[in-house]
Design a protein around this nucleic acid. Sequence first.
DNA 1: GACTCATACATAAGACACTCATGTATAGCA
DNA 2: TGCTATACATGAGTGTCTTATGTATGAGTC
Lengths: 111, 111
Amino acid sequence: MHLFKGTFDVLILKTLSWGPAHGYAISRWIGQTSGDDLTIEEGALYPALRRLEAKGWLSAKWKTTETGRDARVYSLTDDGRRALRRELAAWEKYVTAFTRVLQTKPQEAIS
Amino acid sequence: MHLFKGTFDVLILKTLSWGPAHGYAISRWIGQTSGDDLTIEEGALYPALRRLEAKGWLSAKWKTTETGRDARVYSLTDDGRRALRRELAAWEKYVTAFTRVLQTKPQEAIS
DNA sequence: GACTCATACATAAGACACTCATGTATAGCA
DNA sequence: TGCTATACATGAGTGTCTTATGTATGAGTC
């Protein structure tokens, strides 16, 4: 489905809050747990990870996975953990405000 | 606050579902009812209205308001009403999926 | 009469996250 | 040998946004 830009960072951070993971696995996890309603394209995923790393929210190193492949494994930094808390709060605030607008019925015509 | 791109159209459509209104009033209504948590900049507002009009979701005509000013008053078309229903459903589905990802705790490491 | 504020619309420049397409490489399996 | 899944990467293009700037006028204030 079409998505709302700027919302993926929180999902990535949250996913990494459970422990280190590489990009492909993060993408798969988000797809799975959302029932495939949320899919993050590879062209969006890898730049996003670089971006979050550049912000200091993630740290990365190359490792070999259990299946014998090279993978770039990301971990949440302390800054990343703080950012996650902030972003989660912002998201909830946003949804609350959004819902309020959707549910408020005007007494009279809007002008 | 920073916003999530692509989410405003629904708010505009919803606001117009209560009756015709001009851009400035729509913006004010969204700001008000959200407790100023959601503000739509004028540089985003007017292009968005044109966009929705071009899609056939809104119709517009110039009128003079009660306060004696020229204003471009927008109304929801039938297509717009259908679009609103679709967009609302999509938004709810998105938030649900999003919440599911945020709340799902993995049994084991994500890989 | 001059000034300021709120109302009302408009647009251009630039930022930025996305989609889509394409590319590399390799493990595992039939 | 060929196919699928895994794993990363990037470039071109798109579209919505922010920021800044501009026009114009009604209403109230000094």
